[in-house]
Design a protein around this nucleic acid. Structure first.
Length: 751
DNA sequence: GTTCTCACTTAGTACGGACCTT
DNA sequence: AAGGTCCGTACTAAGTGAGAAC
């Protein structure tokens, strides 16, 4: 079977050694670019989360909001300028480490906030914090939200919401229980939404009803015998500080605790949860001894593992109950599964790669932080004694609930799972755009090749970048803040990330890419390019420092604007989807042997899948047990070989004897042996196939491309055409996600 | 134009349970 | 029954890109 070798210049031409030491690689690349991106993001602003009273007029609020923004912006600007100035002055700065060493002193303002995890009023963390509050008062509602009249707002949607009333009026006051039960049953037999009419533009639903998210369980204080020690002495921490300490104690044998940034961030944040006296006492993380706590937690999880069957069963049932109650919603009269109905529990932020915020405390989320989205009159009850931050009725968005996370200030959403109509429809649409690109890609390629010669530098840059995106399936590369890990994509590549070689390994005009992409995964690829591209890149690099942008006249917005002019709906990421799906189609066509066994066909499929994963640089760390499991497999293979040898010998003897004696008993025996031999051989083949598959797969993650990049209709069609059961390719969840494709794609489908 | 916000997709990892072997 | 392996799932971080705000 031919190897999956794609014309497509995959990043891992010589995979084997390339990613072996992923972590080391990450370190290496990080070092290179340190100078540029090390400046510490000072805390951006500390504006308090002003308690905005509900009755305040919108006008007033808007104005305030404006002012607030202005202030914030100016502050930020100043910061940036400062940073820039510093950069100019000092090329090599000391590690960012030392700067808040004496944090205890510098944090006067923190002294008053002995902030229990659960308190949510005035969290003056450094985040942009609650810009969203502008929308807040506009829509505050109480449990009894029918009374609320929504005057203007919600531009387009108002009318649809009204329209909905006649037909499907949702429970509470509408649908009868029996009717609903019927619906529910129907749902289990799957709803073929793809055969239904779509919503009009921008509208995501007409009715939406759910029970709200599930909150993390409360903190359970340590039993008295588990002690935390400081400087060798037992210290009893109050619950808030103890809880945060426990986050750290849980992670004691994790890599994170060896990292300075992690420790520093943790310690700084931890102190915010201490009482005055704790704060005075505990001033040095190194003197903290969490080992007892750690041991205790370990013992507890051990205990959990050793629970009896009955206990486990009970737990399972409890969980199922929870899912049953909170894991589903009703949307447009259909029952659909929610993807993440549990709110993220508090803990320490685990940023990937070299993240400046790793170790910071991720606060506990309370109902008062959560915005609920649903149709009017369907607001779920908040947990007893609590209120929602807001209830809104925005049917132009798909989320059911949201809250703002405190570490990065990002909004987190509760959304439907991938088997839902809302997700499926978008997925389908995504592949349709990619297929349209297939039709116009030739023309686009012509255009950008022409643009390599443009007089205008910005056009040349755009054209070369697009060439990379097209050829290498690079990500777009939006700009990032300094308070995130330093990773790049195409448009944000810096000079230090590439090197040029007129000649390399017998190839001409080679561009070597070496950078950290999304999730700080290293991308390394040696790519022979057209001479014109090579020369252009040479020009782009002229007179630049390693930390300068390669494409200084380009960003993702410019690129996407241009792409949209070339084809409706085209953006940079469409190329990745197109490339991936197209590669799968080509590879399947090329690798599948119609006469082969199902096992071999599956191997071919996996190979095709792998080609895509390599193209998209989807990596995983080599499983911890890999070497061992490989060894075991090899042993099995050897054993099998031996068995075959023996069987072969025995068979020969039997045959000989049968010939000699001509006895029917001997004939039968020989025939039996033959069959047995056959079987053994088949088993061996299976094992060998398995071994190759596993070896080739050890550091490549197939799941990501399968789930996000490969048009499922290609796989479905392939299965149908080749008589491979779909279950061999997609597991249950995947089949649910790709229901639409399984239903609509026949064997003749081509991407 | 630049910056910021919002919504949504894409991503790798940790973990636990099913299954298979000893 | 214990122990190892494999696989699916849950989790949540980190991207993309549109559009609003400045």
């Amino acid at each position: 079977m031919g190897s999956a070798d794609v014309e497509k210049h995959m990043p891992s031409a010589d995979h084997s050694h390339k990613h072996k030491h992923k972590d080391k690689d990450r370190e290496k690349s990080k070092d290179k670019s340190k100078d540029k991106h090390k400046d510490k993001h000072k805390d951006k602003h500390k504006d308090k989360d002003k308690e905005k009273s509900k009755d305040r007029s919108k006008e007033k609020e808007k104005k305030q909001d404006k002012e607030e923004r202005k202030r914030e912006k100016e502050e930020r600007k100043r910061e940036k300028e400062k940073i820039k100035a510093e950069k100019r002055l000092i090329e090599i700065k000391p590690e960012p480490v030392s700067e808040d060493e004496e944090m205890p002193l510098s944090s006067q303002e923190e002294t008053e906030d002995d902030q229990p995890l659960i308190s949510r009023t005035k969290i003056k963390t450094e985040i942009k914090q609650e810009k969203a509050s502008k929308r807040k008062a506009e829509e505050i509602e109480d449990e009894d939200d029918e009374t609320f009249e929504d005057p203007k707002k919600k531009k387009k949607k108002a009318k649809e919401v009204k329209k909905e009333k006649p037909d499907k009026k949702p429970t509470q006051n509408g649908t009868s229980p029996t009717k609903r039960a019927k619906k529910e049953k129907e749902e289990e037999e799957t709803w073929k939404w793809w055969e239904e009419e779509k919503h009009e533009d921008g509208v995501k639903w007409k009715t939406l009803e759910h029970k709200g998210p599930v909150f993390a369980t409360e903190y359970e204080p340590l039993p008295d015998h588990v002690k935390f020690k400081y400087n060798g002495k037992v210290v009893r921490l109050a619950a808030p500080a103890e809880e945060v300490a426990s986050f750290y104690a849980h992670m004691l044998d994790h890599d994170y605790v060896t990292k300075d940034v992690f420790n520093k961030n943790f310690f700084k944040d931890w102190r915010k949860f201490m009482t005055q006296s704790e704060k005075e006492l505990v001033t040095d993380l190194k003197k903290c001894d969490f080992t007892e706590m750690h041991t205790y937690f370990k013992a507890r999880s051990e205990e959990k593992k050793n629970r009896t069957k009955e206990e486990k069963q009970k737990l399972k049932e409890d969980n199922e109950q929870l899912v049953k109650e909170y894991g589903w919603c009703f949307i447009d009269g259909h029952k659909q599964r929610i993807g993440n109905f549990k709110i993220e529990p508090p803990g320490l932020f685990r940023g990937r790669g070299d993240h400046p915020k790793m170790g910071m405390v991720k606060r506990r989320v309370m109902p008062e932080d959560v915005i609920i989205n649903c149709h009017k009159g369907a607001a779920p009850k908040p947990p007893a004694g609590h209120k929602w931050k807001e209830v809104r009725h925005d049917n132009t968005v798909t989320w059911l609930a949201s809250w703002t996370e405190n570490v990065q200030g990002q909004v987190k959403y509760v959304m439907l799972n991938s088997a839902s109509r809302l997700k499926g429809e978008r997925d389908w649409q995504k592949y349709e755009v990619a297929r349209r690109l297939k039709d116009s890609v030739d023309k686009i390629r012509e255009t950008y090749k022409e643009d390599w010669k443009s007089k205008e530098m910005r056009i040349r840059q755009r054209a070369v970048a697009l060439y990379f995106i097209d050829k290498l399936a690079l990500r777009a590369g939006n700009e990032k803040d300094e308070d995130q890990a330093d990773t790049v994509g195409c448009c944000s590549l810096r000079v230090e990330h590439i090197s040029l070689h007129e000649q390399k390994n017998g190839k001409q005009y080679v561009v070597v890419f070496d950078f950290l992409g999304k999730d700080s995964i290293r991308y390394y690829n040696e790519v022979p390019v057209e001479k014109r591209v090579f020369k252009n890149v040479q020009i782009f690099m002229e007179n630049k420092k390693p930390g300068d942008d390669l494409f200084d006249r380009l960003n993702t917005t410019i690129m996407n604007k241009h792409l949209n002019d070339l084809m409706d709906g085209l953006t940079a990421k469409v190329f990745r989807t197109f490339n991936a799906s197209n590669t799968l189609q080509e590879q399947l066509d090329q690798l599948t042997d119609a006469k082969a066994s199902v096992a071999e066909k599956i191997l071919a499929y996996n190979r095709a899948n792998r080609a895509v994963a390599i193209l998209c640089n989807h990596q995983r760390s080599v499983p911890k047990t890999f070497a061992k499991s490989m060894e075991n497999l090899q042993k099995k293979i050897d054993d099998k070989r031996k068995a075959i040898e023996d069987a072969e010998r025995a068979y020969k003897d039997l045959k000989k004897e049968a010939k000699k004696t001509g006895s029917s008993a001997a004939k039968i025996a020989s025939g039996k042996k033959e069959k047995q031999l056959e079987k053994l051989k088949e088993q061996l083949m299976k094992l060998e196939v398995q071994a190759t598959d596993r070896e080739e797969n050890k550091e490549i993650a197939l799941g990501t491309s399968k789930l996000n990049y490969l048009d499922p209709r290609i796989s479905v069609a392939w299965c149908k055409k080749n008589d491979v059961p779909i279950e061999k390719i997609y597991n249950k969840t995947q089949r649910e996600k790709f229901q639409w494709a399984i239903d609509m794609a026949g064997p003749e489908f081509v991407f």
